[in-house]
Nucleic acid binder design. Structure first.
Length: 428
RNA sequence: GUGGGUGUAGCUCAGGUGGUAGAGCCCUGGAUUGUGAUUCCAGUGGUCGUGGGUUCAAGUCCCAUCACCCACCCCA
């Protein structure tokens, strides 16, 4: 036997048993997004590396050590996208979507990050992202949060908490950053290894350290909220009021600073405690500066992304299977003549009953074996055609799921009525 | 990138201190010449993750490597 080839580390197959759940979640998300007026955008999964360097930030972990970067045949540096916002903004600028316009967009697809795989963290993972452009007020952030909340309700997810914070305007954030760095420099001897590393790159992240000693030090650190300008405060207060109005609870988390460079004002995160260390299920915020950073005209922007694998994991924990595929009917073919004629019969049925999901037995097998397959397929009814039925132009319809219902042998033309009465031909 | 754990049949897992591999489920057939989901019987299926090494002998011990899981880091 030849040597087996395995899938790439951290990149997983979604097998038929799970794909139904994916489809179920995706359709629900799409429906809700459409209810809020969002339209889908699809962008390539490969972009110029430069795009991610300029948007995510050159000194972030994502860009520095997690991107799948390679040279194209003509020498360009390309990267598999590690997230969706950059592409979305790039496409919007390129096609003039932001030219004095408001846009509510969403996308869905695989993202790639070369991290050490873990529960809820994979090298290829699926995100559903939502991005809005041209909305400067806090109403849009409230809408984004309301939309995500509605999705949790729809999916039956109830153990997530909304964490909320503001970084203020870029100016106030920058000013605060200086104050904070000065504070940590003064206490340099107390910083752990990670924090020393962050001090240069992303000092705000030190606030979010899990190290108890750091947390103790952070108690005394200057607070971002003391350094917010009036505009930043007003924006945030308005958002909180809007959320209060629709009864969405949130927890103010001053340590929530987000890892990506481009955020300003609102940042939020939906977290759960039932997924181990990877507790963030959905995160986003406002990123007004990004469009100009990528060469567009000043355009207010806000959005979020959710990790589909993490959401599915949550749903799996809370409910059973959702959206598993099962045919409506399974066609048994008993006897040689029926086996041959049955193939054409199945096609005829599919032509006459377009909404019927019909699986036909292929590969023969004893009657018993075919019945077993019919049962295992999950079909609601078995359609039986043996040599007897074939000769008479009949089909036997046998309900498989309810004990009381009797099977009946009827002319082909009556099959439709029976299946329709049973609801097998409904679209679902 | 760092630390810890685990890899035995398609799946879930047994296999004290080395002696040449087992169960349940699944699948196939039969008990029931055309009636499944319950029962009973039988059968198929393994280079024990991979590659080296120690040994008369390795699933078991040693080394390397790959993958998965968990935590750190990072993030959705």
């Amino acid at each position: 036997m030849a040597k087996q080839i395995q899938s790439i580390r951290g990149m997983h197959d979604i097998l038929p048993d799970e794909s139904g759940q994916w489809f179920w979640l995706e359709s629900r998300a799409r429906l809700i997004l459409e209810r809020y007026g969002y339209r889908e955008i699809r962008t390539p999964i490969v972009e110029k590396t430069e795009l991610f360097k300029r948007s995510i930030g050159e000194v972030t972990d994502i860009v520095e050590k997690e991107m799948y970067t390679f040279e194209d045949r003509n020498g360009d540096s390309l990267s598999l996208r590690p997230e969706g916002t950059a592409s979305c903004v790039r496409a919007g600028i390129q096609h003039g979507l932001f030219h004095n316009q408001q846009q509510r967009l969403w996308y869905q697809g695989p993202m790639f990050r070369h991290e050490r795989p873990q529960k809820g963290r994979y090298r290829q993972f699926q995100q559903i992202g939502v991005e809005t452009f041209g909305f400067a007020g806090p109403e849009i952030e409230a809408e984004l949060i309301a939309l995500s909340k509605r999705l949790w309700d729809e999916l039956g997810i109830d153990d997530v908490t909304l964490e909320l914070n503001t970084l203020g305007t870029p100016e106030s954030r920058r000013a605060y950053r200086e104050v904070l760095v000065a504070f940590y420099e003064a206490n340099r001897d107390q910083l752990d290894e990670d924090s020393l590393r962050r001090l240069d790159g992303n000092p705000l992240r030190i606030l979010d350290s899990k190290n108890p000693q750091m947390q103790a030090l952070n108690e005394g650190a200057p607070s971002l909220h003391d350094h917010l300008d009036d505009e930043s405060k007003a924006h945030f207060e308005m958002l909180c009021r809007l959320l209060d109005d629709i009864g969405i609870d949130y927890r103010l988390n001053l340590r929530l600073v987000r890892g990506l460079d481009y955020y300003s004002h609102t940042v939020f995160e939906w977290t759960t405690t039932s997924l181990g260390a990877q507790g963030t299920v959905c995160a986003g915020g406002r990123y007004d500066g990004l469009v100009t950073q990528l060469g567009g005209r000043p355009t207010p922007a806000a959005g979020f992304a959710m990790g589909v694998e993490r959401l599915l994991e949550l749903i799996r924990v809370r409910q059973g299977e959702q959206g598993a595929y099962r045919p409506d009917a399974y066609l048994l073919l008993a006897g040689e003549a029926a086996q041959q004629a049955g193939f054409a019969l199945a096609e005829r049925l599919r032509g006459d009953l377009p909404a019927l999901k019909l699986q036909v037995n292929i590969g023969g097998g004893s009657f018993k074996a075919q019945m077993k397959r019919a049962d295992k397929s999950g079909a609601d009814v078995a359609l039986i055609v043996g040599d007897d039925e074939l000769a008479a132009g009949h089909v036997t319809v046998k309900p498989l799921r309810d004990r009381d219902a009797a099977q009946q042998t009827v002319p082909y033309d009556s099959v439709r009525a029976i299946l329709e009465a049973r609801g097998e031909t409904r679209d679902d």
